[in-house]
Amino acid sequence: MDRVKLLEAFRDFFHYGTLDRLIDSYAVIKTESNTTIPADIDWQEEEYTFNRLFVGPSTPLAPAVASVYLDPEGQIQGKVTSQVRDFYDSIGLELPEIGSEPEDSLAYEFDVCRYLLLLIKEVPEIIEAYDEFINEHMKLWLPQFVQRGLENCGDSVAIRDVLGLINEWIKKESEMTDMSKELI
């Protein structure tokens, strides 16, 4: 399993929101997690469910934004978003169009994890920043997000599958960072 490729595929699955990107990134997610793609996926239905859960136009049932789960009032672009923005800033990263989307959107959080994993290869001490982002931020909201998604995704095959794999991913990364930190 290539951890960077898996993160890129998770990121793309949530970022682009087009059917062809959903299909492509799902294929990579399955390859990188060593599982096979089910044959009976109705992608039109998956696209509808994806939009209902994460996009709109009606209120998304399981928004893929950390603030919704971590802010006491679920306020987006509030304190949580600002703190995630500060974290990106400390690493030297920013959104291409600042203010266009909340920095704590899931796709951006997967992308910062990808950057950190790449950096760890060059500067092992970065594991501490990665550990902090995983264990003191993502792990606090991803399980709630996955739970809400699973409760509302109906008969979806691919989205249910991806949500399950994200849940496994966060558990694994949390355990791995704890172990890796002990080695440094």
């Binding site: 500060d86 690493i91 030297g92 959104l95 291409p96 796709a107 992308d111 950057y115 501490e128 920043a129």
Partner: peptide, 27 residues
């Protein structure tokens, strides 16, 4: 966030800018 200064050092060395680009951009 006591490693902020350390992380800023990465920016100064251009470490992030040399990574394959993602949807977040190097500042």
């Amino acid at each position: 966030f006591n490693r902020r200064t350390f992380l800023k050092g990465l920016v100064a060395t251009g470490a992030i800018a040399s990574m394959p680009a993602g949807i977040l951009h190097a500042k």
